[in-house]
C-alpha cells in the first residue's frame, strides 16, 4: 500500500491535466532505463505524501524542519529500475547519487524549511535534504555534496 501511495497521488495529479498544464514545470524526472519522463509541477509535487524531517547541516544555523515529498516517492513516479540518480540544479550543477540513498534514508525533496517555502533566491524550488542529524554516517563531505539545491532535473540511469 505504501508503494502505491505515490503512484495514486501522481494519478490524482495527472487527472487534472488542464490545471497541471497551466502551472510551471518545477521538476523533470526521467528514467532512462524505462524510457519514462515525468514532468511535475508544484501542485503535483505537493500531491505526494508530504514528509517533514528535522535535521541540521552545514548550510543552516540550527535544527530545521524540512518538508516535502520523499525522494523515493518522486523517483517511483518515473518507474522502477536504475542504479544511479543524477540530480541537476538550475545552474547546471549536477551530482550523481546511488539510488540506494533514497531507499536507505528518508531523503526529502524539501520545498519548505520551518514552514517557509523556498524561493529560487534561497535554494528553491527544491532542496535535496538528507536526515544528517539522525544518521551520523551522513555527516561527511560526500553527503554534503549531495545536498543539491535549486533542483530542477532528476535522471535515473
Amino acid at each position: 500500500m505504501n508503494r502505491l501511495t505515490p503512484i495514486l497521488a501522481l494519478a490524482v495529479a495527472l487527472c487534472l491535466p488542464r490545471l497541471a498544464m497551466a502551472q510551471d514545470t518545477m521538476l523533470t524526472v526521467t528514467n532512462t532505463v524505462t524510457g519514462t519522463e515525468v514532468i511535475l509541477s508544484e501542485a503535483e509535487l505537493m500531491a505526494f505524501p508530504q514528509v517533514t524531517i528535522h535535521t541540521e547541516n552545514e548550510f543552516v544555523d540550527q535544527m530545521t524542519a524540512f518538508s516535502g515529498p520523499l525522494g523515493r516517492d518522486v523517483l517511483a513516479a518515473a518507474g522502477e529500475g536504475g542504479s544511479t540518480v543524477v540530480l541537476t540544479a538550475v545552474n547546471d550543477y549536477a551530482v550523481e547519487v546511488p539510488i540506494e540513498d533514497f531507499t536507505k534514508y528518508d531523503v526529502v525533496f524539501a520545498m519548505s524549511a520551518d514552514g517557509e517555502k523556498f524561493s529560487r533566491r534561497d535554494k528553491g524550488p527544491i532542496w535535496v535534504v538528507y536526515p544528517m542529524s539522525e544518521h551520523a554516517e551522513l555527516q561527511d563531505p560526500v553527503y554534503n555534496a549531495r545536498l543539491i539545491w535549486q533542483l530542477v532535473k532528476v535522471e535515473i540511469k
Binding site: 547541516n57 552545514e58 548550510f59 543552516v60 544555523d61 538550475v90 545552474n91 524561493s119 529560487r120 533566491r121 534561497d122 535554494k123 539545491w149 535549486q150
Partner: peptide
C-alpha cells in the same frame, strides 16, 4: 532574472550556516 536569482542564492549561502 533566473541568473539574477541564482546569483542571489549564491550570495545567500554566505549569510548563514557553518559554510557561510
Amino acid at each position: 532574472n533566473q541568473r539574477f536569482d541564482v546569483l542571489w542564492s549564491r550570495v545567500a549561502v554566505f549569510q548563514r550556516g557553518k559554510v557561510g
